[in-house]
Structures are given as structure tokens and as C-alpha cells.
């Protein structure tokens, strides 16, 4: 099975159950918004999807690779943008990208070609030698997204990537990632609690208190109502 598949995944911090029998599937090339209020278990799920944590309960498959049995193949297929910025602000833009490329075993001409392509895509080729600290928040986020694609993953995971950005930067990044999914066939899982980042054609998986409440196409889920209302009616009353 391609895309991203999560089946019967549970995880607990001691006695506290953070994820409870979560199952969903994001088809290849689809944009899926993982929607949940703060504390729903989104970041825990991301930690499992990126193998920062492992669990014995449930199966996670990335592009057909079981992350517990074939972790290296699965991780090679994942591009990830964490909620917390992971750029080294004192390194140059280029050095940040080449460091990441090297962590994926890429060096030399191959890495340089990919880095140039990433910088061109961001329209930042002339800023390659600048310190990352000198970029604004929106550019840093775009740089992180471009960096996450350097090794040509098939699945892109983004954990609340617009946190801390202004409205214009939020919109630009949301559109950019939607375009990556539509034009490049990238499977995207976008965790958020902001419903305005989701388009009608997107898949939506609603996570609340560690349980998956629903997974559907956004347009089917809302049936013409604002997504915000549907989301709050499913989670807000008990939040």
C-alpha cells in the first residue's frame, strides 16, 4: 500500500494514554489535514510517524514500508517539518541544506544539484550564503519545507508548520504545500488546529483526546457547513 497508513496505533506516557487505537490512511498524492485541538495527540503521532518514539501497539506504513520492521527505508521516504524550528540559525542557508542532505547520505554534485533546485524553488538562490538568522519567520519555514524535500521523499509530514507566522506567511505556506501535493504527487499529512488552512478537496482526520473521531474528504464532512462549526461540534463541547 502506498501513501501513509496508520493502523490500530496506541501510545501511552506511563498511565496516560496519548493515542488510543488510531487508524487512518492517506492515499498517495493526497493532502490530509490532521485536525485536533491542543493536546489531542498530534505531536505524539508525529513522533511515532518519524520514529522518534516507537510503539508495540499498531502498524505504521510509509510508502509501503513498515516503520518498525524497515525503519531506514521508511524514514528515507519521509520529509518532515516539525512544529519547533530545527534550522541552525548561525549556519548559512546553504550549510543548513547541505547538512540535512548529508544526514540522508547525499553529497557532492548530487547534493549541490538538489540544493540549487530547492533554493531556486524558494527564489532564494542569491541568499544561499546568508546566515539563517537573517531570514524572516516565513522564509525560515519555507526553507525548512524545501529542506525536507531535498532527498525526494514521497510523504511529507508537517506538524503545525504555520505556528508563529503572520497571516500572509501562513497563507503562502499553506498554498505552497497544497501545490506540492497537487503538482508533485506528494502525500501530505498536515497537523493543525486551524480550520482555515484546509481546502474542500483535502482529506480531514479529526483527532481528539487520542482517538480518531473521523476521516473523510473535507467537503463530505462539512456538507456545506463551515469546517470550524463541524470541528467544534465534534470536539469543542467536550474540550
Amino acid at each position: 500500500m502506498t501513501g501513509l497508513s496508520v493502523r490500530n496505533v496506541s501510545y501511552a506516557y506511563g498511565e496516560k494514554r496519548a493515542l488510543d487505537d488510531v487508524s487512518f490512511h492517506v492515499p498517495q498524492g493526497a493532502f490530509c489535514a490532521l485536525l485536533g485541538p491542543n493536546g489531542a495527540g498530534k505531536s505524539t503521532l508525529f513522533s511515532l510517524l518519524t520514529r522518534l518514539f516507537t510503539t508495540a501497539q499498531g502498524v505504521i506504513e510509509v510508502a509501503g514500508f513498515d516503520i518498525s520492521k524497515q525503519p531506514r527505508q521508511a524514514l528515507a521516504q519521509i520529509g518532515v517539518v516539525f512544529q519547533q524550528p530545527t534550522l541552525d540559525l548561525d549556519l548559512t542557508v546553504h550549510r543548513n541544506l547541505s547538512y540535512f542532505a548529508a544526514l540522508h547520505g547525499l553529497a557532492g554534485r548530487d547534493a549541490e544539484t538538489r540544493i540549487s533546485a530547492a533554493l531556486d524553488r524558494l527564489d532564494m538562490a542569491e541568499r544561499a550564503a546568508e546566515r539563517t538568522r537573517d531570514l524572516n519567520g516565513g522564509h525560515r519555514r519555507r526553507l525548512e519545507i524545501a529542506r525536507s524535500l531535498i532527498h525526494s521523499p514521497s510523504v511529507l509530514l508537517l506538524d503545525e508548520p504555520t505556528v508563529g507566522l503572520d497571516a500572509a506567511a501562513r497563507k503562502a505556506i499553506t498554498q505552497h504545500v497544497h501545490a506540492l501535493s497537487q503538482q508533485d504527487g506528494l502525500t501530505v499529512l498536515w497537523a493543525t488546529h486551524l480550520t482555515d488552512e484546509i481546502e474542500p478537496d483535502d482529506h480531514v482526520a479529526i483527532l481528539h483526546r487520542g482517538k480518531l473521531l473521523k476521516q473523510e474528504l473535507c467537503s463530505d464532512l462539512t456538507s456545506g457547513q463551515p469546517l470550524q462549526h463541524v470541528f467544534l461540534s465534534m470536539t469543542g463541547a467536550t474540550a
Binding site: T50, R51, L52, P71, R72, Q73, L75, A76, I78, V80, F82, Q84, P85, T86, L87, D88, F100, L103, H104, G105
Partner: peptide
């Protein structure tokens, strides 16, 4: 704390090697 450890640990290389 700054998050860059996550970048290292999500590399497809074996964690012990990293």
C-alpha cells in the same frame, strides 16, 4: 530543546551511528 536533535534522529541512518 531547540529541535535540531529531531533532525538528526529522523535521518534514515542507524541511531547508534548518528
Amino acid at each position: 530543546e531547540m529541535g535540531s536533535m529531531r533532525l538528526l534522529l529522523t535521518s534514515p541512518l542507524p541511531r547508534w551511528w548518528l
